[in-house]
Structures are given as C-alpha cells and as structure tokens.
C-alpha cells in the first residue's frame, strides 16, 4: 500500500511537473529570443559581400543554401565578438578579393578609383578647348542676332513646313 502511494505520488509529481512545465515550454517556443546577433546586423555586413558562386547577387539577399550558410557563419563570428573587418578579411582569405563588393584599394585595383575622374577631367578639357577654338568673337558673326526663348518656334524646318501648308490652303 505504502509502495503504491509512493508510486502514485511520484506519478502525480511527475505529471504536475510536466503539466506545469508545458506552458513554459510552449511559451519558450513562441518567444525564442531573437538570435543574437540579429538578422539586420548580419545583413549589414552581408550587403557588402558577394559569394563566388551566385554572380552579382549580394550576399544579404541571395536565396541559395550556400549563401544562407555564409550568413550563419557571419552570425557565429559576430557572436564570438569578431569585428566587421575581421569577418570580411576572413572571407577574403578563403575566397579571394571577389567576395568584396568593391575591389580593395591596392595594386591594379587603384585604376578603378582613379580612371573615372581622370576620364571626366580629360573629356571636360577636350570640350573646353574645343569650344574655345570654335568660338568666335560676337561682332564677327554676321548672323548673331539673338533669338530668344522658345515659344515662337525658331525651327526653320517646321516654319517652312507651316508656310508650305498655308500656301496649299
């Protein structure tokens, strides 16, 4: 009898523990704390990176499994306290410069930072000198009567056309 009581007691305690515990478990399931670091923190780094396989799709928005794993790796490293730069360097060491959204500023890569402004300056210079050489002092231009604005059409072609139209009527 005592044995049975003790057994029943054990079951009752066990059950109550389970029953009491269940809502907590359920609650825990509903409120799993946001993974630290958050998705947004991971994406902020992934945004500036590309995996070598998915061409031209930034890592933060790529849907493939490989990219998902990379993002998880970033999350783990962030949790371990790595800085953004350390994480980037880690991927560069493994997969090369192409994982970065912009070439690192060294060696041949400098070209891509220097060429655009240089090309523009060269173009502007050509235009400027060209324009100066085309330009003539105003008084030497016989047909230099200023023609204003727009409403009264200065398009000779159209005005000739309209004249022709009038004549035909």
């Amino acid at each position: 009898m005592r044995k049975t009581t003790r057994w029943l007691l054990a079951v009752a305690i066990g059950l109550s523990v389970v029953l009491l515990g269940m809502p907590q478990i359920a609650q825990a399931q509903g409120e799993v704390p946001e993974p630290t670091p958050s998705d947004n923190e991971v994406n902020a780094i992934a945004k500036e990176m590309f995996c070598p396989v998915c061409e031209n799709i930034p890592l933060d928005v790529c849907g493939t499994q490989a990219c998902e794993q990379w993002r998880e790796q970033i999350r783990e490293k962030l949790a371990e306290g790595w800085t953004e730069e350390e994480i980037r360097d880690y991927f560069v060491q493994l997969y090369g410069d192409r994982v970065l959204s912009e070439p690192p500023r060294r060696g041949l890569n400098w070209l891509i930072y220097i060429l655009p402004p240089l090309a523009f300056l060269a173009g502007a210079y050509v235009l400027y000198t060209g324009f100066r050489s085309w330009r003539r002092p105003l008084e030497q231009t016989p047909d230099a009567a200023p023609i204003h604005g727009a409403a009264e059409e200065q398009d000779e072609y159209v005005s000739r056309l309209e004249e022709a139209l009038k004549k035909r009527k």
């Binding site: 500036e48 590309f50 031209n56 930034p58 090369g96 410069d97 192409r98 994982v99 970065l100 959204s101 912009e102 070439p103 060294r106 060696g107 041949l108 890569n109 891509i112």
Partner: peptide, 15 residues
C-alpha cells in the same frame, strides 16, 4: 605578381 594577381574582383552597385 602583387599588381597582376589574376584575381577576379567584384564591382558592386555602390561604386
């Protein structure tokens, strides 16, 4: 080889 390392690079939207 430091300059011409043959590495492909990515030129992203921001550039």
């Amino acid at each position: 080889s430091n300059v011409f390392n043959g590495q492909k690079v990515t030129v992203g939207a921001e550039w």
